[in-house]
Design a protein around this nucleic acid. Sequence first.
RNA 1: UGACCCAUGGUGUAAUUGGCAACACGUCAGAUUUUGGUUCUGAAGAGUCCAGGUUCGAAACCUGGUGGGUCAACCA
Length: 567
Amino acid sequence: MNELNNREKEEFRTSISFIEQFIAEDIKEGKNEGKVVTRFPPEPNGYLHIGHAKAICLDFGMAKKYKGKCNLRFDDTNPVKEDVEYIDSIKEDIRWLGFDWEEREFYASDYFGKLFDFAVELIKRGLAYVDDQPADLISAQKGSPSQPGTESPYRSRPVNENLDLFERMNKGEFDEGSRVLRVKIDMTSPNMHMRDPIIYRIIKSPHHRTGSSWMVYPMYDFAHGQSDYFEGITHSLCTLEFEVHRPLYDWFIDQLKTGDYRPRQIEFNRLNLTYTMMSKRKLLELVQEGRVAGWDDPRMPTLCGLRRRGYTPEAIKRFVDLIGYTKVEAINDVSLLEHAIREDLNMKAPRVFGVLNPLKVIIQNYPEGKVENVELVNNPEDESMGKRLVPFSNEVYIEQDDFMENPPNKFFRLAPGMEVRLKGAYIIKCTGFKKNAKSGAIEEVYCTYDPETRSGGNASDKKVKGTLHWVSAAQALNAEVRLYDRLFDHEDPSGQKDDDYRKFLNPDSLKILTGCKVEPSLAQAATLDRFQFQRLGYFCIDPDSTVSMLVFNRTVPLKDTWAKVNR
RNA sequence: UGACCCAUGGUGUAAUUGGCAACACGUCAGAUUUUGGUUCUGAAGAGUCCAGGUUCGAAACCUGGUGGGUCAACCA
C-alpha cells in the first residue's frame, strides 16, 4: 500500500532524461512528422547482459511512450565472429524482458546490396579508393590522436581502376587482407575516424545469412548509420564511445541523403555495476576457461544468468529506471539492483519454510506420531495468494544459527531455558540439548511445547521475542541449495590497470548446501518458480532440479539486521 | 604535443532550464511486526571540482585551470 504510494510519487516526478527531452523537442518541432522510430542493434556474437537491458529499455521504451516503433536489427557485418546461436538467445532475452519488435526483425546483412551500391557510388564520385597496402602500413599512416596521418599512395588511383578492383575483390580474386576500400576524407583530421577509414574488407568465410554470395563485407562504421537511414530510424540511441564516430556517420549520410531526413544519434552512458564487469570478451573468457558454469551461470550479469538466478524482468526494468541515462561514466552499486529484486519479489513470491543448515529439535511433550496441519499465509503482502497447510510433528528441523548454547545479549532465538515461537505453530521452550563431545557441535535440541499457544488458539497472543521457521522432519523434502555471492571481491575488477580481473575472482561466490530440508508443498514447484524462504531470502528452482532432489538458487538474501549487529 | 565528452552527499540521479540543492539506494536511530523481512517515522551526510567573470540572484551562462573518460581493429 505504502510502497505503491512511493511508486506513485515517483511516477509524478516531472523529470525525464536528457535523451527523452531531445526526443520530446523533436516531436514538438514536428521533425519526421512527429514520428519516433528507434532500434536495438546487437551484434550476434555473444549473450545479452544487463547493460544491454539498459539500452533495450530505452530503445523500446521511448518508442512505446511516444507511440512509435522499435526495430530489432542484428548488426551482422563480420561473419567470422557471428553465429545463429547468439541470434536465438538474443531474441529470447528481449522477449523475456517483455519487449516486442513484431515483424520488424532486420539484419545489417539485408542491406549488403544497397551498401555495396553506395560504395560503388562513392568510388564513382571520387570519394573512395582501393588501397593495396597491408594493414600495418595503413595503420602507421593513420598517425596518432596527436599526430596527423599521411596519405596513401593509392589515394589518387583512377576511378575506373578502383571500380574494377572493388568488383574483383568481391569476386574473390584477391586474398583476405590484400586490399581494402577506403573512403577519401581527411588524413589530417583531428578525429581519427575521419582519416580515410576503411569501409570494405575481403572476408571469405561464409556468412550465416548470405552464405558465400559476398566476398567483401562492410565495416560496422559503414553499415550502422546507413542501416539506420534505410530503416527510417529517427533516434539512434547508443553508448558514449560512439560519440567520436558521429561525424563520420554524418558524413556518410550527407553523401547518401536525398531529403531533409536523417537519423539523430544521441549517446548515453553505459551501465557499470560494482563487483562485476560487462565486457563481452571477458565474460566469454570466464565461460571458456570454466570459471563459471556457462553463460547462464547465476553469477553472471547476463540476462540468462540473472533469469536463472531468479531475477524478474520487472525488477531489471525497475533498476534500469532507477539509474537513469546520463553522460557521466558511472559505476552503479549492486545494492540498488538487489533492492529492485527484493521490492518485486516481496510482493510476488510465496513464503515457504526451508531450512538450510538443519538442527533437529525434539519436542518431548508432543505425542510421537501425531501430525497436525497448521495453516500459514502464503504472502502477508497479498491476501489473494491464499493460505496453505504445513505438517507439524514432534520432530522438526530449525536453522543451526537459531540455537546458541551461550547466547549474547540480544539473541532472540532458541537457547537453554528460552522460549520462541515456531511460526504458525506453537511456542516451545528449550529444556536441553545434545552436544558432540569431540567436535562441540550441537546435535539435537530438546524442548517442550505449550498446547495453548497454537497460532489462532487461546493463548496465541502470548508474546515471545523470537519466531523461527521450521520443517517437520518426517515430511521434509531434501534439497540442494546454491548460495551465490558476488563473482568478484573488487568493486571494479576490470578497471585495474596493473591487475588482471581474474585476480579478483571471489573464491566464495558459490556455496553448495546439500543437506537442506524444505516443506512438502515444494514438491509441486516448477523450474524457475520463485519463493521466499522465510527469514532467509528469495530462492528459485534451478533447471538442474529433479523430482528426487530439488535444487534451489538463492536469488538474494533478505536484509539481515541481526547479522549486521554481529559484524 | 591533438580532438571530443564529462564533473552535484558514500553510490546513482533531480533541480519546472538563472530563483530556498531534491529523490532513491546505502548508513544510523526509533515504532510496528507470529519473517531480526515488510511497513512507518526520524536523523546524519553535498553547498554543486577549483579560480575568476556576467547577474539583484549561478549547480546551471562565459573564460581559464584541475581531474576523469573516449579516439590510433581489415572488431562492433
